[in-house]
Nucleic acid binder design. Structure first.
Lengths: 187, 187
DNA sequence: GTCTATAGTCCGATAGAC
DNA sequence: GTCTATCGGACTATAGAC
């Protein structure tokens, strides 16, 4: 049921959880090894055994959100019905699910890496490029697909930085409009 | 022709320029007073005379991009023709102009503040909320206006983090599609 | 108004015991 | 595998000369 590998090295998961939570609590640039260790309930030495450097910790945070998003996408792909711009609608759904409790914090890894070591975001850049390629080759209406994708990226960006001015009702309305755009080419 | 106030305190402008450039060169979290002072051609003491703390410097960077964007919006408002969803098309145009050499670097102030002191982004949050209110009260087609706005925010977000996979041609195509969406309600 | 020098703090990483 | 203790470097901010 659960991944076998998720039982391996429980400390790593605890540490990554702590780091992800801390970013939203104190800010990406204030993430220190001391703070992460304390929040994870271990010592700084214990942390540095699992992640030999702060850079390695940030890299682990970035990889974790990428793995989670890819897994969710694969899982959704089999259950989502076909239809116009199916690929774009899949991507949009995955992005919007990211706000749910679990994945929301994981996305903080991107903020932390962006603040401290932007080079670590190369895998994210690759995902974006790959998403664009998939949309180009699999969209019924590329213009609508790109606008729908970018609109949800914009919404996610707002939510990641706590800029979103939208109520839950506003959000539902926007999502419905994006879906209409992807299905019919108009809002 | 030029703003009278821009001759006042030339050092401040030099410092803000240096800080903005540095963010894209070395990363938001590596912005230090030493580096800014060196890049601006003054000493750290001279810097701290103009900005009494690093927090004040970050605040100055945030305010500068806000002022620039608001000024550009006001200027564009008088020259842009009317038409469907005029307010949304105005906002979209301002956001897209931000990529131009001058304003692009200014936007780095947001990255720097986000990394070090996210509280300083409150004015940005206010602008987002205000933009939403304006769109709600002045749009012919709110759904289209919101999607167009969010799509361009998504594109800007990609470009700000150097995630954009789009060629210049792709970008023009996307902008054209957004404009069609705002004018006609369909892509 | 800008400089140099330095105080004081925080943090990442290492060393070695258990 | 996790701990404590500590080193060494980097950074913000202050003090005072010019």
């Amino acid at each position: 049921m659960a991944k076998v590998s998720s039982m391996r090295s429980n400390s790593r998961e605890k540490i990554l959880d702590a780091a992800a939570h801390l970013v939203s609590e104190i800010g990406a640039g204030r993430l220190t090894l001391d703070a992460v260790a304390h929040r994870a309930g271990i010592s700084k030495g214990g942390l540095l055994y699992n992640f030999p450097s702060k850079s390695a910790l940030l890299q682990g945070m970035v990889q974790r959100i990428i793995d989670e998003v890819c897994a969710e996408k694969d899982q959704l792909r089999s259950t989502m019905p076909e239809g116009p711009n199916a690929e774009a609608r899949l991507i949009v759904t995955v992005l919007l699910n990211m706000r749910s409790s679990k994945t929301k914090d994981l996305a903080n890894g991107i903020l932390a890496a962006s603040a401290e070591e932007p080079e670590l975001l190369a895998p994210v850049r690759d995902i974006v490029r790959q998403t664009f390629e998939e949309l180009k080759s699999r969209s019924d209406d590329l213009d609508a697909a790109l606008i729908g994708w970018l609109a949800v990226e914009g919404l996610s960006s707002f939510e990641m930085h706590d800029f979103s001015p939208f109520t839950e009702q506003d959000r539902k309305r926007i999502i419905a409009a994006v879906d209409r755009l992807l299905r019919n080419g108009k809002v």
